[in-house]
Simulated scan of single mutants.
Amino acid sequence: MPGKRDELLNLEKRDIILREIQYWRKSRLLPEQYCDFLTNIYDDEATVKDNNPISLHNLQQGSIKIWLFGFGIISLIFLISLYFSVFPWPLQLATALSVLIVCYGYSAVLRDRQKVFSLMLAGIASILTLGFGLWIIELHNLDPLFWRPILIGFCGLLWCILGFVLRIGLLNYCGFAFWGLLYGGFFIKIRPDASMLELELLWLPLCVLMVWLSWLLYHRISGVAGVYFGVGATLWIMPEIDALLLRQGYPQWVSFLLLTKIAVGLALLFLFRKKWITWVTS
């Protein structure tokens, strides 16, 4: 019994050391070759195993099953692309949902073991979400003025939720960006001749809200404070971007106002760098 207990303790220590080495590798605290060397020392099999079946090494050394699996996936994608337009709309919707569920599902499953592959699947699924939606709208001659905003709102909500759950910052940010686009487009229709002061009041409260949420979530939930801070920083200059890109007839001095706000924003970032860098890296 004592010998078996000592063996288990040694295995636990080795696993802790290997996890720490992997953390050094991901954080780039040590060069890749040093991490491989240390892993070889503490790994019983003396090899750095690559669990990703899509890696170049595993494709070179892999069995015929991996190649057949890849061929099947590529063939399925081409078949869906070629015959999607002739499917009845219930089958089109079911096909799109099935592809998205599979991609997002595998992204969630592989999030901890194969992070790069998980991010690739999430990115592909996000592009397909928007692509399938636009394709269905065009195929069925749906009113784009009505259905495109619905698609934008759906994509934004989906990406915000999945980005938060899967801790994918870029996906979460894109979700907020789509909601910002929907928000700006809605107020363009309501107030097409809004003054610069109205635009500042339209966007800046949201900027303050997102920065406050960044501070709040930093103390409670890890991995999302940086996204909210980035959204808040973007909203800081959104009134001027709204005036210059989304509306017409604004004077030239709006460009100088944009440059002034960028300079003020950078000055604030410099003054409070010790605080917001902690939020972003949490």
Results as ranks from 00 to 15, higher is better:
residue 106 Y to L: 14
residue 76 L to W: 00
residue 267 A to T: 09
residue 54 I to M: 12
residue 100 L to Y: 01
residue 49 K to G: 01
residue 19 R to E: 12
residue 118 S to P: 07
residue 218 Y to D: 09
residue 206 L to Q: 04
residue 65 K to D: 06
residue 242 D to R: 01
residue 233 A to T: 09
residue 200 E to A: 11
residue 143 D to W: 04
residue 280 V to P: 00
residue 83 Y to A: 08
residue 56 L to K: 11
residue 242 D to K: 02
residue 278 T to R: 15
residue 174 C to G: 07
residue 19 R to L: 07
residue 182 L to T: 04
residue 64 I to W: 01
residue 61 Q to K: 12
residue 146 F to R: 15
residue 196 M to G: 10
residue 185 G to E: 03
residue 255 S to A: 14
residue 217 L to R: 10
residue 154 F to C: 15
residue 38 L to V: 03
residue 27 S to Q: 15
residue 272 F to Y: 14
residue 73 I to R: 08
residue 72 G to K: 03
residue 24 W to S: 06
residue 115 K to R: 10
residue 14 R to N: 14
residue 82 L to W: 04
residue 146 F to I: 14
residue 191 R to Q: 08
residue 35 C to I: 00
residue 225 A to R: 10
residue 196 M to E: 05
residue 262 I to C: 11
residue 212 W to P: 00
residue 256 F to T: 10
residue 16 I to M: 07
residue 9 L to H: 12
residue 252 Q to D: 06
residue 145 L to E: 15
residue 134 L to C: 13
residue 244 L to Y: 00
residue 178 F to C: 10
residue 172 N to C: 05
residue 111 R to M: 11
residue 206 L to R: 07
residue 107 S to C: 07
residue 194 A to D: 07
residue 205 P to A: 01
residue 156 G to N: 14
residue 223 G to S: 03
residue 202 L to I: 00
residue 66 I to Y: 05
residue 106 Y to H: 12
residue 195 S to R: 02
residue 5 R to F: 00
residue 137 I to Y: 01
residue 106 Y to W: 12
residue 261 K to L: 04
residue 270 F to C: 01
residue 88 P to K: 02
residue 225 A to D: 01
residue 103 C to V: 07
residue 92 Q to E: 06
residue 24 W to L: 08
residue 189 K to T: 13
residue 101 I to S: 12
residue 24 W to N: 02
residue 89 W to M: 06
residue 25 R to Q: 14
